[in-house]
Simulated assay, not measured.
Amino acid sequence: MTTPLTALERDLLACVERLVTACEVSAQELSGLEERSTTKMQNQMDGLAACVSVLIQSQTASVAALHGLLNEGSNYGRLRTQLETSLKLVKAAEERLRQS
């Protein structure tokens, strides 16, 4: 046999139901926020990794140009091309960072 609930018990049950519903909605919203934040952070990390890769390529071109400059048979046209390549790569990395 079930005893009917009192008015106070019904009010308390209604409060508990609202609280459970609010918690479920909050959990869904937090889950969505976490997913969006994780995606944004991953995109930023990917952008930074790409920039580092470009900067490494730029440094490699600069070092090759400087190495060529120190060798006896340097070709200044080639050195200029290598340094221009290095500068283009640095500018590409800078632009990528601005977009991130």
Rank of each mutant, 00 (worst) to 15 (best):
L55M: 13
S58W: 01
E17F: 02
G47Q: 05
T2S: 15
Q28N: 15
L30K: 10
R80C: 07
E17S: 11
Q42V: 05
R80Q: 11
T6A: 06
E94G: 04
Q99W: 07
Q82H: 05
L69F: 09
L33W: 01
E94S: 09
L83M: 13
L48N: 06
C23G: 10
R80L: 12
E72R: 09
R36G: 02
D11G: 07
C51Q: 03
T21M: 12
E95K: 15
K91F: 10
Q44L: 15
Q28E: 15
T81Y: 03
V54D: 00
A22Y: 03
V63N: 03
L8F: 06
A64S: 13
G68C: 08
T85A: 06
E29T: 07
N71D: 06
S62T: 13
L33G: 05
T38C: 12
E95A: 14
N71C: 08
C51I: 04
R96G: 14
S37R: 14
L79F: 04
L13Y: 11
G77S: 14
A27N: 03
T39Y: 04
V16P: 02
L8K: 12
Q57M: 11
M1T: 08
V54T: 05
S100H: 13
E17I: 04
A50F: 04
T6K: 09
E24L: 05
A65C: 07
S58D: 00
E24I: 05
A50C: 06
Q28K: 14
L70N: 08
Q82K: 11
T6H: 04
L5F: 14
C51D: 02
T60S: 08
A61Q: 01
